[in-house]
Design a protein around this nucleic acid. Structure first.
Lengths: 188, 188
DNA sequence: TAGTATATCGAACATTTGTTCGATTTGTCA
DNA sequence: TGACAAATCGAACAAATGTTCGATATACTA
């Protein structure tokens, strides 16, 4: 029933999207005094899990929202001593630029496998963005949607599959770009 | 200077990780009365942008955090009428199970291209998870880290590349699994 | 065991914060 | 222009919230 303070704050923030109040922490942890809660939260501020804004109120710190970025695969995992230097990143701020225009689509079909886009992958797509040459787009062709490379060469525009077994598509009349793929997400 | 209320709440939430107070909204918007702020936020509650918890306090609603999930690529984009029925999802809750143990690694090298993992992709990895047969793992081999399939067949354990040009790795002594890859993220 | 430092408690207090409601303004339509 | 409805204002109020500080308990050291 009684939870460590940091654990409680972390899970509460994940479930409710906000930092719990002092008295909520009081009820959920083993502590029985608000002054203890204050002391403990001050320590969590020091550690970077939470922050205090200009009015002194608690807001989530980076360590509550972000994931640590290590280097490349070769570089591997840093030692505990180096841990402090690690950069962090939230998935949202990394992947999403225009939130209102961003949607998630599930990939089916193998027309982009050579581009590393597999059936079952999730595509983050942004509507209304102008497609540039080489972009991967969701296009409407013959009233059906498809994912392809958008190619624009010397005034000529066509769709190119990322799989040699598929043919390029040359639009007969209009070519309707529904959205531009900004990110691919695969979950194992 | 003066911002629409929803715009203000949205950007404030993105920057600070919490919903602004009524009086902060008052200062940032063109409204001059707290009662107007209350009326307007009640409308935003109706619309699903923010919610009220059991104590009546505002917390971010799903529409503030989540992205709409459309169906497959073929299904395409729903009409405005269907828009309300769409499922939503936050990237964090979709991708991250054990936040404390999750790190981001940048992929370099081409040893997994046939598995759709390209150089430059980001890998979400979880430390401490037990690798199962077929999992993609970050392994330490000869003091260097590498990304490979983890294969466990009849007591025999080895690492298999996801690219025919690379050879499998049979560990001579110990095989150290640093982390299990739980997700691949590619940003264009 | 006595002494000291540290951690926690408990209650009072000062602000902050959301709510309410009557007054005022703005917009709409005939 | 006048009448009505809707939107917004403004100030007072009640409840929630963070802070403070002396008292008490616990852990550690000599």
């Amino acid at each position: 029933m009684k939870t460590p303070l940091l654990t409680y704050i972390t899970t509460y923030y994940h479930n409710h999207g906000r930092i719990p109040r002092y008295r909520e922490m009081l009820a959920a942890t083993a502590y029985k005094s608000l002054s203890t809660i204050k002391i403990k939260t001050d320590e969590l501020v020091e550690a970077g899990f939470v922050e205090r804004d200009d009015t002194g109120k608690l807001s989530p710190g980076r360590r509550l929202r972000a994931l640590p970025i290590l280097g490349s695969v070769e570089a591997g995992f840093p030692s505990a001593a180096e841990e402090e230097l690690i950069d962090t990143m939230t998935l949202d701020e990394f992947l999403i630029q225009k939130k209102e225009a961003t949607y998630i689509l599930k990939i089916s079909g193998e027309s982009m496998t050579d581009a590393g886009i597999m059936p079952g992958d999730m595509a983050l797509v942004e509507r209304g963005r102008e497609a540039k040459n080489g972009d991967i787009v969701i296009a409407e062709v013959d009233r059906k949607y498809t994912i392809k490379y958008f190619i624009k060469e010397g005034g000529k525009v066509y769709l190119k599959a990322g799989n040699k077994k598929y043919k390029d598509i040359y639009p007969e009349e209009e070519l309707s770009i529904a959205a531009v793929v900004v990110s691919i997400i695969r979950k194992y």
